[in-house]
Amino acid sequence: MDKQQIFNDVVGIIKDYVKDESKLANVSMETSILDDLKVNSARLVDIIIQFEDTFDIEIDDDDADNIRSIGDAVNYIAGRVGADQGAE
């Protein structure tokens, strides 16, 4: 699994929680999940749980607390699953 695939999967998970689809048009590694995509903080917990299921990993509270942008999620997941480069 490379980073581009992780990026696509991460965006695919998050988009189900984004009410205004236009906000997904220019999504990038720098996009803030809470502030740019307007996902509320309770739904961010749901997203973290979906990351665990999709990528078959456990995300502890400290790591979950540091996931604020798409890039944070992609880089963290890539580190956990040993991904190749891409989507930088």
Partner: peptide, 10 residues
């Protein structure tokens, strides 16, 4: 404390 954890379990 602007850098405080936001994680609700804390």
């Amino acid at each position: 404390f602007p850098d405080i954890s936001a994680w609700p379990g804390r």
